[in-house]
Structures are given as C-alpha cells and as structure tokens.
Design a protein around this nucleic acid. Structure first.
Lengths: 214, 214
DNA sequence: ATTATCTATAGATCTATAGATAATGC
DNA sequence: ATTATCTATAGATCTATAGATAATGC
C-alpha cells in the first residue's frame, strides 16, 4: 500500500490522470449548467488544458459527458456506503441513504444538478447508487420489510421520488432541506409497505455527519 | 364558429402554421431520440422545409426545442382533460389522470420519450399537466382526501413517481403497462394519504377508452 | 527514449442573411 | 402588393490531426 491512496503507478500516470480529471470536472460544470453544446475548445479552456489533450482521453464530447455522469454517480455511491456503515436493517439502511441523498442538494449542488439535467435514464444507470439501492430493497423484500412485487419496481419508485425531492429543493432554495427530505423518505417508506408509525420513527432518527469523499 | 376548428384566419396564416408545425414535429422526433446536437439543416430537412424558413419562426435551436417540449406538455394536458370529464372526487380525478398517463408510454412513445429526455426540470414546467395536477391535489387536500402539507409538495411527489413509471415501462417493453401503472398509482395514492384499501379500489376501477387528440 | 501535452492549422461544418421565387390577398 | 418560403453563400466556428515542446523514465 502506497502512502497516497489510489495513486497511479508512475508520475506520468498521475499527470495523465490529472489532465483527465480536469476535463471530466469541466464537463461536469457544463452538465450542471445544462449547457452541453459547448465546443471542445471551451471545455479545454475551462479545464485549463491544451486543446489537443482532449483527444488523448476522449474521442467525442458525448464520451466525456457520459463519463462525467458516471463519475458523479460513483461518488454518490461511495458517500452512501460511508453513510450506512454499521447499519443492519435494510429499511434503515435504505431510509438513511435516501435522507442523506436529499441533503446532497444543499451540500453538493453541482453533483445534484448533473443528475437533474441527465434525464430519466439516470434511473436505470447501473453505476453508483442504483445497484446499492437495488440490493437494499431486495434484502428488505426478502425479510418482509417491504411489500413490493420486486426490487426492480421498488428501485424505480424510490428513484423517481428522489429526483422529485431534489428538483423540489432545487426550485425552492429557502425550504428546510432536512425536513423535506425526511418527509419524502417517510412517505416513500409507506408506499414501499412500511407501517406509517414505523416509517415516521425511522425517518426521525438522528443522522450521522456527512462523510467526506476520499 | 368556422367549419374547421382552431383554423387560423387566412390561408397564409395556415400555411405559416403548417411550416412551424413541421419544424416543431421534427424537433420533437430529435428530442425523443435524445439527439439535440443536430444542425438546423438536419432539422429543416427532416421537416421537409427550406433551410431559411427556420429563421421565420425561431431565432435559435434552443427556442425550437423548448417549444417542442411545451407543445408536448400541452397535448398531454388536453388528453388529461378529456379523460377525467364527468368525475368529481379529486382523488378519483387524480388517479385517473395518473393511470392514463402511465398508459401513454405504449400509446404515444414519442411524447413520453420527450418527457424522459427533458430532465427533472420538466417537473416544474408550468405547461400542460402540472397546473392541472396541482389544482386536483389542492382540492383533494382541502377536502381531506390527501394528507399532504401542501399541493406543491404533492405534485412533485406525483411527478417523480410518474417519471419513474414511464422510465420503467420504457426500459421493460414487455411488461404489462396497465398493471404496472395501476400499481404505481395505488402506491402513490397511499403515500399521499389515501387509505390502502380505498387506494386499491380507486385504482382498480375501469378506465374509459383513450380519447383522441383534436 | 518514451509519453503526454501543447500550438497551429487545414478542411469540414454550421449559422445567419441576402435575394429570388412562389403563394396568397385584395 | 404582400408575405412566406426557398436557394445560395459568405463568414464564422468547430473538429481532428500533425508536428513541436515539455515532462518523465531508465
């Protein structure tokens, strides 16, 4: 294990990764603004990278934008993993992920805007939170915590409610994000089949601090 | 009242409207495919309209695409109005609109794809179904049919669930669209505060045939 | 010596407009 | 006579690449 976590083998590799990261980060900024018709020149300028470097990493703009979305989803997934550490009950795990996700709108507005601009297809993207939520819900169904026909259906329902929550917080910047998130989580648990009084209890429990990304 | 409903005043106006309509329709096709980086030339070719005609109607591509989304939302709103005619109970009105909307994925796949590609901002677009759903939900809250803090919150929850439903049907073309739609409607009603047994009853009632657009 | 980045540019593509043509109004 | 549509094109912009430069490896 090296002193630097996740470090690439050589300095060359690290430099390459830095350039790539700058491009992805710039692309994400544009995705968050909803301006995907920028030129490659504008992207490399924003990334503070030579124009030609773009082609060392991506063949087309779409390829870069796609990666930017996936990187964002992956970060989200890592945050979720850190947030639910130590929990056992799938209903609690699921509720905590959801409540944390709602709070992301204020904590990481750029990432959230990327999601909101990405279209509904984000709900079936296999990167990041979806596979995790799918596993939580499947386990919850098996244990009888949720009364849903299948985890696939449950994860779509949950994803749709999450998108709506984030868009609501986005469009109403003065609302109480924690309260709204917990309310949505509670109603979602109810629609997944959790008893109302239990849903309220789960969604009223204290949350740990927001974990930091590596 | 003229013999032709909605007819523009003169033949010239009608010709103009036809050209504009062809552009909007072509734009919608591209929106449904998710290919919004086409050139104006490609759009006018698809619309079978001279290149220069574009500028008689729109200043930029974005303007055209925005209109294409709004026209789609408006059509949706008209369908909803026809579908709920004669109903009184806001819970029933709301449930029927939602169940019909779910069935749209198979009946009008292009319109649905436009919605799904539009991003979550579609949930706060003031055209089409949102204002209608907002009114239904507000009335339902006032009458005590729904236990939600406000209609604004309720309409976002409903919109998110609808997006998820449409994306699920989109990604699983062989599923039973009516059954899945009614299931989502039922769980949505429950999360809005309707008693489970009543939600099931409302969402199991027969639907009228799909009304035609004018 | 190798590899990635950077700059410069040729060629392709795209936009916006001018002016010609066609359709309609009166 | 008026209005919208169409064709053609100048100028702008954008992409993809070639070749030079800089950083790193050994």
């Amino acid at each position: 294990m090296g002193t630097e976590p996740e470090a690439a083998r050589s300095r060359l590799d690290r430099r390459k990764a830095r350039t790539r990261g700058a491009l992805v980060s710039a692309a994400r900024t544009f995705l968050a603004q909803g301006t995907t018709s920028v030129s490659i020149q504008e992207i490399t300028d924003a990334a503070d990278v030579g124009f030609g470097s773009f082609y060392n990493h991506f063949a087309t703009k779409d390829e870069l934008f796609e990666e930017a979305v996936e990187v964002t989803l992956d970060e989200w997934g890592q945050l979720r993993d850190a947030a639910v550490e130590g929990l056992e009950d799938p209903a609690e795990i699921f509720a905590r992920s959801f409540r944390m996700a709602g709070r992301m709108q204020r904590l990481m507005p750029e990432q959230v805007k990327v999601m909101l601009n990405a279209g509904a297809a984000i709900l079936v993207n296999e990167r990041g939170i979806r596979p995790r939520a799918l596993a939580d819900l499947r386990r919850g169904i098996e244990l009888g915590r949720f009364t849903m026909p299948d985890a696939e259906t449950a994860v779509m329902l949950a994803g749709g409610v999450l998108l709506a929550l984030m868009e609501l917080l986005e469009s109403d910047p003065n609302s109480d994000d924690a309260a709204v998130s917990d309310f949505f989580a509670e109603r979602l648990l109810i629609s997944l089949g959790v008893e109302p009084h239990e849903a309220r209890q789960i969604c009223g429990s204290p949350l740990p601090g927001v974990p930091q990304l590596a």
